[in-house]
Design a protein around this nucleic acid. Structure first.
Lengths: 339, 339
DNA sequence: CTGTTAGCGCATTCAG
DNA sequence: CTGAATGCGCTAACAG
């Protein structure tokens, strides 16, 4: 069903049909209604490819994410999807599995797909070859979750948030506070969060034990259990994300420790599921859906303006410390265990 | 960067460049390498829209899902995404929030987007207007999770799986087994699972208490707590999905009941997170990622064959009862509470 | 307000 | 094996 057929059936020119759809005001109400009726009868749908080819705009946004198996990114993608539809955009998501080569391949793929702009979560903006390519191509893009002075980003103050969380734990009486993270090298967020932990500990005048670094994708419960064995085990764990926090709670359970009585656990991300857990997850909540929404809006704005986004367009969204049940006061006997 | 530029730079015709990419054999190795080199130097990427317009194939699949906030669908989409990339397809996902009007709008949107095929999870295939429209359009499609005799589906035997789960609970000594479900009317899966529950109860010669039906999206923990209050409360809960199971566990906790000691809970879906919870979720695991993968493969096959999929192409994938820690033997005093 | 026409970038005839 | 020419469906000048 093409515009030609509609024009013929309605007894008007193709230009009129096109106008009736794209500039309803530039056409007589009578002819507009005629065209609309015929189009409906013929079940006409404008061909997106032809339009894209002609206008050089696809009204499609590429989305590059590490994985959908982490609810954080699923929530973000949901936010992106909703905002995109609302703005008249389609989205083309690709997952990278935290792999650099996949990041590059994804960008390549999406550029070939004629996307008008890209939203991406990369491992590390500083070292991403994909971003170089993007800037060279001049396609508008925005980073989500990442934070970097040279790129437009939508993110939260991870470092400050974690430092604050550490302070809260200190106020609860904890002294031996450890941090659990995924592979540091694989994520700038992890690095920022770790810095926040170090800062928080320093400000409290506490010595920070070595980072507990576990492989990203794997369950890593075994490794976590090992950390909880020593006599001078931590009384509180700051986890770099909610998935790790959940696994840490499991590791505690397997090690015979009760959460929060024997061990306090704080997560990071604020996945919705955390609120339904038992104990409800105490976590630093990011506005995941909003991060997606703002990314879309920023991008749509830039596209409409016909220019790429600059680093100074970056948005720092508010985070919130979400109080759950996985944190409690440090117990006396825990302190004793430390001495 | 167009094919024209590459042709000019390489000193050949556009036809040769096109052939060098699409039919490498139909061109001299020498010219092929020349073209490839020039293309690389010029950073040439074939324009997807132009190709689609010309070939009438977009190599894009539409995906219609209820939500990404349920990890089940996020896992499925991940499977779809991976299989799509592997098969040279892009995906265009749209979420419907379990709303019928959104289902229709989504299909409309995707058809306009020139997708070669669609994967969809609808509320109920029997009543879906979206499917009518799809069949009329002659576009290949496949339903995921849904199960219906008149449509091509990739799913599991939900009814049998739940009946089996009930049997297992009975063998653990449970007699008072209730089912918790989302809005029945909003999902054929929920209906099938409920039938499985009824069958399992009947086969065990047990009376099935009224279905505990809670609104889908909401947390519903309060409603669940109410169900656990009566003296003749159930000793086991069969939940229509893992999210409900997680909330049920929380509701039990808030009601002062221990899982699994006071209450056994079985879920349905097999979300990855379930294994990391404490207690680890006992659930009927669906191969979510595989459901996505098979949907893509079936569709790709049909598209290659130039025909729509028939209902008899449906796939029934194996499910697995995943033993966790949220189920235990019924206790004596529980039985006492029932008398 | 409406019609005619060119061309977006590519794949594909048909000649050579 | 390669080149010239056509048209996929649409929008944007331009002409009337």
């Amino acid at each position: 069903m093409s515009i030609q057929a509609v024009a013929a059936q309605a007894g008007v020119s193709v230009a009129t049909v096109s106008r009736a759809f794209n500039f309803p005001d530039k056409v007589t109400p009578a002819t507009r209604e005629l065209v609309e009726r015929v189009a409906r009868e013929l079940n006409y749908l404008p061909n997106a490819s032809a339009r894209t080819l002609r206008t050089q705009r696809s009204r499609t946004l590429g989305v590059v994410l590490p994985t959908l198996l982490n609810p954080t990114f699923a929530e973000c993608l949901q936010g992106i999807a909703r905002a995109a539809v609302a703005g008249g955009y389609a989205i083309l998501p690709v997952t990278t599995g935290y792999r650099l080569d996949e990041e590059e391949r994804a960008v390549q793929l999406l550029l070939a797909g004629n996307v008008d702009g890209l939203i991406l979560v990369v491992s590390n903006p500083s070292t991403s070859a994909a971003l170089q390519r993007l800037q060279a191509a001049g396609v508008p893009y925005v980073l989500a979750y990442n934070r970097h002075a040279d790129h437009p980003c939508v993110s939260v103050d991870s470092e400050g948030a974690v430092a604050d969380a550490v302070t809260r734990l200190v106020l609860l009486g904890h002294r031996r506070i450890a941090m659990v993270s995924g592979t540091l090298a694989a994520s700038d967020r992890a690095q920022q969060r770790y810095r926040g932990y170090q800062r928080g500990m320093a400000e409290a005048g506490l010595a920070a034990p070595p980072l507990v670094e576990v492989p990203f994708v794997e369950t890593a419960v075994d490794a976590l259990c090992a950390e909880l064995r020593p006599r001078s085990r931590p009384t509180a764990l700051v986890c770099s994300n909610d998935l790790l926090a959940i696994r840490s709670i499991r590791a505690a359970h397997l090690s015979g420790l009760a959460v929060p009585d024997d061990l306090s656990v704080v997560g990071f991300d604020g996945i919705a599921l955390g609120e339904d857990l038992t104990p409800a997850l105490t976590t630093i909540a990011q506005p995941n859906s909003d991060i997606g929404r703002h990314s879309v809006e920023l991008l749509a704005q830039a596209i409409a303006g016909g220019r790429a986004l600059q680093a100074d367009a970056s948005l720092l969204l508010p985070h919130a410390f979400r109080d759950g049940e996985s944190c409690a006061n440090a117990r006396e006997d825990n302190d004793a265990a430390l001495s």
